[in-house]
């Protein structure tokens, strides 16, 4: 059983909110796997996607503690089966004539884009869920990964309903 949970947190778009939330996680001893923040369709609201690594009981605490923050509008745990999630990875791989085509092939397989290329390295940009990206990185590993940067996970529920509907009242 995975203990990873994805929380969508709608917050007021105000300075200091991110600090407040990350401070809460560290103070209560909750481990964050990934955190992504950005604007939403509503100017007054930002949305955070937080992936936490906790058991169910502590998860309930996280959620309740988040809800206590005055600037938090709504906390929703996304059901992995009823949601899609995605992150971006940029990876700079050592590439010369001998291995370049192998790298390109791998990139194609994972629908990655070549965003930069020189005689010594290629930068691939791939989008997808963590499993897919990890498989790609594993295959690229033997070529020599010079640099790697990943975004936090963003996630959204499937279907027509929106969690933002009733966040302001």
């Amino acid at each position: 059983m995975s203990t990873k949970h994805t929380l969508s947190v709608l917050v007021e778009n105000k300075p200091g909110v991110l600090a407040r939330i990350s401070a809460l996680f560290s103070r209560r001893g909750f481990n964050i796997d990934s955190l992504a923040v950005g604007p939403t369709e509503n100017d007054a609201v930002s949305r955070m996607t937080v992936v936490v690594d906790v058991d169910l009981l502590p998860l309930e605490q996280v959620t309740k503690q988040l809800n206590k923050l005055v600037e938090v509008l709504k906390v929703v745990e996304l059901d992995p089966l009823a949601s899609v999630n995605s992150q971006v990875v940029l990876v700079k791989v050592r590439a010369d004539a001998s291995n370049r085509s192998g790298i390109l092939e791998t990139g194609q397989m994972f629908k990655a884009k070549i965003v930069d290329a020189t005689s010594e390295a290629i930068v691939l940009q791939a989008v997808g869920n963590a499993d897919k990206l990890n498989s790609m990185l594993e295959i690229l590993e033997p070529h020599g990964i010079k640099e790697l940067v990943q975004s936090g996970v963003v996630a959204i529920g499937r279907g027509p309903r929106s969690i933002t509907d009733r966040s302001r009242h």
């Binding site: 309930e60 959620t63 309740k64 809800n67 709504k74 906390v75 929703v76 745990e77 009733r166 009242h169």
Partner: peptide, 8 residues
Amino acid sequence: MARRTEGH
């Protein structure tokens, strides 16, 4: 999952 009760 804690839900805040609304409308109070």
